[in-house]
């Protein structure tokens, strides 16, 4: 039970964690973990749609947080700092994946597999004949739409729409100008909207 921890802001908790006296440091960190674990996990989950990978990357991010605690400037918002680390973890992961894919056989037909998967999704979600037909979200399709975005659009959308960061914060995390954030988010949403409309009209 640590009601004292709960009263503190993210920043206070993190400063308490890195404070030299070290009392309550672990508790403070735990509180931060409680606050952000799910957000970070779902950040990676929506980028990968793979829970296992998302958990590994979440662990990686918090490890980075511990290692780079010293670099944290109290001027920056804790959330921005944390997501910068998450973004770094994501970039490193993608680089590794890229290398791995290059070295692995070139026979895997990514496109075909994805299509088959899509068909499976549609099939499995079809309503039983006697069931009342109601508009129900097809989660598989939504994931597909996200998968079709460029990695840059996708991470920007993730930060601005799913994580509800401001465009300015997202720009700081991704180290890109505000205008670029704007363009990416708008383009991503427009693209998905178009796909949804095509799907409905099918």
């Amino acid at each position: 039970m640590s009601p004292l921890c709960s009263d503190r802001s993210d920043q206070e908790l993190f400063l308490a964690y890195k404070s030299p006296t070290g009392t309550g440091a672990v508790a403070a960190f735990e509180e931060l973990l409680n606050r952000y674990q799910q957000k970070v996990l779902n950040f990676f989950y929506r980028l990968t749609f793979n829970k296992e990978v998302a958990e590994d990357l979440t662990q990686d991010t918090f490890t980075r947080l511990v290692q780079s605690a010293r670099e944290y400037q109290p001027r920056a918002a804790f959330k921005t700092f944390l997501f910068s680390l998450a973004r770094n973890a994501w970039s490193d992961y993608r680089r590794c994946e890229e290398n791995r894919r290059k070295s692995v056989s070139l026979e895997t037909k990514v496109g075909d597999d994805a299509d088959a998967e899509l068909k499976d999704f549609i099939k499995s979600d079809g309503p039983a004949p006697q069931e009342i037909v109601v508009q129900r979200e097809n989660i598989g399709l939504l994931k597909k739409y996200l998968d079709n975005l460029s990695p840059e659009q996708r991470i920007t959308l993730e930060l601005c729409v799913f994580q509800e960061l401001s465009y300015e914060e997202a720009g700081m995390i991704l180290e890109i100008p505000l205008g670029t954030v704007k363009t990416r988010v708008s383009a991503a949403i427009m693209q998905i909207k178009k796909k949804m409309e095509i799907q409905i009209n099918k």
Partner: peptide, 18 residues
């Protein structure tokens, strides 16, 4: 898009991180 259900971390994750 936002209706994609978020996942919950497995209890082991927290243990691993801590």
């Amino acid at each position: 898009l936002k209706s994609i259900p978020p996942i919950t971390p497995s209890p082991a994750l927290k243990t691993r991180i801590m």
